[in-house]
C-alpha cells in the first residue's frame, strides 16, 4: 500500500474499526436472541428510535435544554475559577485564608450538592446551573493557579528589566504563559460540567437528557434510554473536539501542542 493510503487508514479508519466490530457482534447476538431486547436492544432498533426522536424534535429539545444549562454553568464557574485563581496567585494572604475552605469544599462530589441546592434554590434552573458551575470551578481554579505559578521567572525578570508595570507583565507574560494550563482546566471543566448536568437532571428535572433517561427507565424503554446515553457521549466528544480546535488556534506558538520545532 502507498504511504498516503496507510496514513489515511491510520488517521481516520483505525479509530472506527473496533467500535464497528463491536456493533456488528452486538447486532448479531441480538438477532440470535442471545441478548434480551428488553435489557439491551439491537443497534438497529436503537438507531430507528434515534431517527424517530430526531425527526419528532424530541431529542433536540432535551439536548438543547441540557446544553443551555451547561453553557450557563460553565461560563459562570470558569469565570469565577479564573478570577479566584488570579487572586490566589497574586496574594499569598488570600491563598492562606482560603486554604482550609477550599480544602474542605473541593473533595465534595458534585452530586452531593444537588439535594442541598434544590433545598436552597428550588427545583428550577438556578440549582442546576449552580451545580454545573461548582463542577467547572475547581479544575479551572487549580489549573489557573498552576499555570501562573509555572511562569518562567526569567521571562518576568526580562519584563521587569524592560521597565514594564505589573499589569503589562500580567497581560504580556503571565497570562500567555499560563494559557496552556488554563486551557487544560477548561477542558477538564467542561467535561465535568457535562457530567454534572446529567446528574442534576437525573434527580430533578422536567426537560433535558438526564430527565429523558430517568423517564425512559420508569417506562422501561431501554432503546430510548440508550439513545439518551449515546447522545451524551457523542455531544461530550464534539465539545472536546471543538475546544481542541480553539486551543490549537490560540496556542499556535506552543511547540508541545503543534508537534513542530
Amino acid at each position: 500500500m502507498p504511504k498516503k493510503t496507510i496514513k489515511i487508514f491510520d488517521r481516520f479508519l483505525l479509530p472506527v474499526v473496533l467500535p464497528g466490530l463491536l456493533i456488528f457482534l452486538w447486532e448479531y447476538l441480538a438477532h440470535k436472541g442471545v441478548i434480551r431486547s428488553t435489557i439491551l436492544p439491537a443497534p438497529s432498533v436503537i438507531s430507528a428510535t434515534f431517527y424517530d426522536m430526531v425527526v419528532s424534535g424530541e431529542l433536540w429539545g432535551h439536548l438543547k435544554t441540557s446544553l443551555w444549562r451547561v453553557f450557563q454553568g460553565f461560563a459562570l464557574g470558569s469565570s469565577l475559577g479564573l478570577i479566584a485563581g488570579l487572586l490566589i496567585s497574586a496574594s499569598p494572604r488570600v491563598e492562606r485564608s482560603l486554604l482550609l475552605v477550599t480544602g474542605i469544599l473541593r473533595p465534595i462530589p458534585i452530586i452531593a450538592w444537588v439535594p442541598v441546592l434544590i433545598l436552597w434554590m428550588g427545583i428550577d434552573e438556578a440549582s442546576k446551573v449552580t451545580v454545573i458551575s461548582i463542577g467547572t470551578f475547581w479544575p479551572v481554579l487549580l489549573n489557573v493557579i498552576h499555570g501562573i505559578r509555572s511562569t518562567d521567572r526569567k521571562h518576568i525578570e526580562v519584563a521587569t528589566m524592560l521597565g514594564k508595570n505589573p499589569s503589562s507583565i500580567l497581560i504580556h507574560v503571565i497570562l500567555p504563559s499560563a494559557l496552556p494550563s488554563i486551557f487544560t482546566g477548561l477542558r477538564v471543566g467542561i467535561g465535568i460540567a457535562w457530567m454534572s448536568v446529567i446528574g442534576a437532571e437525573l434527580i430533578a428535572a422536567s426537560q433535558g437528557l438526564g430527565y429523558l433517561i430517568a423517564y425512559a427507565r420508569e417506562l422501561s424503554q431501554a432503546d430510548v434510554m440508550l439513545v439518551g446515553v449515546a447522545c451524551i457521549g457523542f455531544t461530550g466528544l464534539l465539545i472536546d473536539i471543538l475546544l481542541q480546535c480553539i486551543e490549537k488556534r490560540l496556542l499556535y506558538w506552543n511547540v508541545n501542542l503543534s508537534g513542530k520545532g
Binding site: 526569567k154 526580562v158 528589566m161 524592560l162 507574560v173 504563559s177
Partner: peptide, 30 residues
C-alpha cells in the same frame, strides 16, 4: 532597571508567544 541600560542573557529569554517583531517591540519603552 532603566532603559539606559540593556541586557542580554545566556538564554535568549524570548517570549515564545510573540513573533520576532513583537519580541523586539516589547523592549521599546512606553
Amino acid at each position: 532597571p532603566s532603559a539606559e541600560r540593556g541586557m542580554v542573557f545566556q538564554e535568549s529569554r524570548l517570549l515564545p508567544w510573540k513573533t520576532v517583531a513583537e519580541n523586539i517591540a516589547f523592549g521599546i519603552p512606553k
